[in-house]
């Protein structure tokens, strides 16, 4: 019998497979099709202080081996999340762990969401989406070392729950950003968010995406996600959640071998909602075949030479 569980953030994940933010709604959306509570967990759509309507169409399109999206963080907002979404999560997810993805445009936005959720139960902790523009600084939190440090430190003061920072790959040296998060009190990291990209309709000579630019996800970004995960784990002690293009157990294992304790599946769930349960089953099969009894032993087991 293979043990797929992972101990981290002071709790046990029954297996390492989570659904990525923005690709699983708030869990309920998939509950018709898959047993969401059998997963390692889910990460909610980003929650911002106020409800956000999001970007104008077109918001998504297919790109080679993946997709581009510019949803614009459309979400129900903090109050909407507490009123409309959290009750379902609380009632239906007891074994799958829930991270609430938090987004904002200022440190106050992020802290406001976290403080607004502190007294609620039904979720484990936060995943902080720093791929948002900082209205004060102009750059993204996740690409500016100083604003990232200030943000993480402020959030650390605001919560004792697990605080996971989701890094953008759009930086020269992701290890530096990983270090900054750890030094300022983050409990874990998620690598990676989407890559910035564009898609142009050559007939109309216009961008396909209403927002002009968007984020690229899916199998196309998997090698870069594995690389970012590997770079980040070499610089920090805190656990890492590997994300980007995972379509099956072999993909998930690449991230785990590179150092990820958990993984998240996003875009591939659109291609087939069974991807996550199939990945869990596949991990078990590969471990059995390789004579591995505890999947946790594979974390960072990459042999470079």
């Amino acid at each position: 019998m293979v043990d797929l569980s992972q101990e981290l953030f002071g709790t046990t994940f029954q297996n390492p497979v989570l659904l990525a933010s923005g690709t699983c709604g708030y869990g309920e959306e998939y509950s018709d099709l898959i047993a969401v509570d059998e997963l390692g967990g889910i990460v909610t759509k980003a929650v911002t202080p106020e409800r956000r309507l999001g970007n104008p169409p077109t918001r998504i399109s297919e790109t080679p081996a993946g997709m581009i999206n510019a949803i614009g963080l459309a979400n129900v907002g903090l109050d909407g999340f507490k009123r409309e979404k959290l009750p379902w999560i609380r009632e239906h997810l007891s074994r799958a762990k829930v991270l609430v993805n938090v987004a904002g445009r200022s440190v106050e936005d992020f802290v406001g969401v976290v403080e607004g959720l502190e007294d609620e139960d039904g979720f484990l902790g936060y995943e902080i989406n720093v791929s948002c523009p900082n209205v004060e600084g102009g750059t993204m939190f996740g690409t500016d070392e100083l604003s990232l440090a200030q943000l993480v430190a402020a959030l650390r003061r605001a919560t004792r729950r697990p605080l996971v920072v989701k890094l953008t790959p759009n930086v020269a040296e992701i290890g530096n950003f990983a270090r900054i998060c750890e030094e300022n009190g983050a409990d874990g990291l998620s690598t990676i968010n989407t890559f910035p990209g564009m898609l142009i309709d050559v007939e109309t000579r216009r961008p396909v995406i209403g927002n002009v630019t968007g984020g690229i996800s899916g199998p196309a970004i998997k090698p870069m996600g594995v690389f970012a995960t590997w770079k980040a784990t070499s610089r920090v002690e805190i656990p890492i959640i590997g994300i980007g293009g995972i379509c099956n157990a072999r993909d998930a294992l690449e991230y785990i071998l590179a150092g990820a304790s958990l993984v998240q599946i996003g875009t591939a769930m659109f291609a087939d909602p069974f991807t996550a349960p199939d990945t869990i089953r596949g991990l078990r099969e590969i471990c059995e075949r390789q004579g591995v009894t505890r999947a946790a032993d594979l974390v960072g087991a990459l042999e470079v030479r």
């Binding site: 959306e29 999001g54 104008p56 918001r59 998504i60 949803i71 459309a74 909602p273």
Partner: peptide, 17 residues
């Protein structure tokens, strides 16, 4: 019609005004 990824409300991609 609008471009879609999931068809079931999770990706929020097919929004129209």
């Amino acid at each position: 019609e609008e471009h879609m990824a999931c068809g079931m409300g999770t990706c929020i991609g097919c929004a129209i005004p």
